[in-house]
Nucleic acid binder design. Structure first.
Length: 273
DNA sequence: CGCTATGTTGTTCC
DNA sequence: AGGAACAACATAGC
């Protein structure tokens, strides 16, 4: 379920569980998630110890004492599991790090959309994927600059990892709901005040989600993503039904009453600019 | 059976 | 050039 807050939880879980232990073996149950890197991956990492971790957007990085960096992207259905080697390997475990203490760390990917591998540095990976700044690190000026000159709907822009990294489909909906802006509004029509609100909500929602350890049911009562998609809810603010549409090819939830479609201003220049 | 799904990438068309 | 639309990837659940 990994958007930025979930991946941050995975990072903390990893830090508490699996640092400073020698990797005695690596089991590759499904080579495809390594993207053809299987031999290098095993050779470079066997015998190493993880000493630190990092995160950039939805990507997790595990770094060894000899400065090898393992990247992990989880697709739609990935997670980590640290477990005693004496118990059964978890279902959908694709790559398993076996440590000398008889515990294993499994990279799990049910739908096989996730990928992992070894790179020389976080910076190298970020550059190769052309990722924008992490959604928790980006400044409002950098956010505004990254959107400058774009003409795409704001929801697609938020999901664009090259603009800012870490926003997924649910958080994009939540940001725009909390900001009161309809998802199809074009970035070119948003003024600096509106961009500021979107930026502030993005940070606030990320931090709130991390604060509840990414447990959806513990999100604030006025969040539309609190119950997931199985429960049809009414708008927490105006009580009218939440609309389900498709924007940018993704299922999209919004309130047509509380979220305004921002149109081009007739004057050609907007107030406050 | 048909449809949808917390994501990314590549193609094609405009 | 940039953006939209769409398919592909693999699997489960409704």
């Amino acid at each position: 379920m990994p958007e930025l807050p979930e991946v941050e939880m995975y990072r903390r879980y990893f830090e508490e569980a699996a640092l400073h232990q020698k990797i005695s073996a690596i089991e590759v149950h499904h080579p495809k998630v390594l993207g053809g890197q299987e031999q290098d991956f095993i050779e470079l990492l066997t015998g190493e110890q993880f000493k630190s971790s990092g995160r950039w957007g939805k990507n997790l990085f595990l770094q060894t004492q000899n400065d090898h960096t393992v990247f992990m992207h989880f697709g739609m259905t990935g997670t980590l599991d640290y477990y005693n080697a004496s118990v059964e390997t978890p279902k959908y475990a694709r790559v398993v790090f076996c440590f000398e203490n008889e515990f294993n760390l499994a990279y799990i990917s049910k739908r096989m959309f996730g990928r992992l591998g070894v790179v020389s540095s976080i910076a190298q990976y970020v550059a190769s994927k052309a990722l924008g700044k992490d959604a928790l690190d980006i400044s409002v000026d950098q956010f505004t600059e990254a959107l400058a000159g774009k003409n795409k709907n704001i929801k697609a822009a938020l999901l664009d990892q090259s603009i800012t990294a870490g926003v997924g489909n649910w958080i994009a909906d939540e940001i725009l709901f909390q900001a009161g802006i309809y998802p199809t509004s074009s970035t070119k029509n948003l003024n600096s005040g509106q961009l500021r609100v979107i930026y502030d909500k993005m940070k606030e929602i990320m931090q709130t989600a991390i604060g509840v350890e990414a447990v959806r049911e513990e999100l604030p009562a006025d969040y539309i993503t609190r119950y997931g998609r199985k429960i049809t809810i009414d708008c927490p603010k105006c009580k009218r039904p939440i609309e389900k549409t498709e924007v940018g090819g993704r299922g999209t939830y919004a309130c047509t009453n509380c979220q305004v479609v921002v149109e081009a201003s007739l004057s050609g220049r907007q107030a406050g600019e």
